[in-house]
């Protein structure tokens, strides 16, 4: 028996803002779709574009990377560097026609409500696109 398809989304959340924002959403009992799998990272600047590509390779239908608002980075400029990398990756994926699967957001530690809204919109966007074309051949060679 197979259940209807649900998008799987990997979320890289920075420890200082977005992860705390997600925590706030949780303790405030704000409802949002349960489709995200959170990976806590020290800073959005530490998210190598390869992490995002690997998530897609492993069968994620979408990826969300979230960090502190510009100017609020715990490491002062990590998110500014991240923004440049993400922009190039975003445009490159757009060029390949894979628009709408990889999302970036700035969510602060006090924005629990906003975190829920971001996740809701990301899940809705990925749901609209359907399963990832890279997730199809999942039977073989799954990495640990």
């Amino acid at each position: 028996m197979s259940s209807p398809w649900e998008p799987k989304i990997v979320a890289f959340l920075c420890h200082w803002c977005s992860y705390a924002g997600a925590d706030l959403a949780g303790v405030s009992r704000i409802q949002y779709p349960p489709n995200i799998r959170v990976i806590r990272v020290p800073c959005s600047g530490s998210v190598d574009p390869l992490y995002i590509l690997k998530a897609l390779r492993e069968g994620a239908d979408g990826v969300l990377v979230s960090g502190c608002h510009p100017g609020d980075c715990h490491y002062l400029s990590g998110n500014y560097f991240a923004r440049r990398k993400f922009f190039v990756l975003y445009e490159l994926l757009r060029f390949l026609g894979l628009e709408g699967r990889v999302h970036f957001s700035w969510v602060s530690a006090s924005e629990g409500q906003r975190f829920a809204e971001v996740v809701t919109s990301v899940v809705a966007a990925v749901e609209k696109l359907g399963p990832s074309p890279l997730a199809g051949e999942r039977k073989y060679h799954d990495l640990a």
Binding site: P49, L50, L53, K54, L56, R57, L89, L92, L93, L96, P133, L134, A135, E137, Y140, H141, L143, A144
Partner: peptide, 18 residues
């Protein structure tokens, strides 16, 4: 380990985009 050596679409995707 980022990609499997087998040349499948998804591994090729990670290699070339990486």
């Amino acid at each position: 380990l980022f990609i499997h050596p087998s040349p499948t679409l998804r591994d090729n995707f990670v290699f070339h985009l990486g």
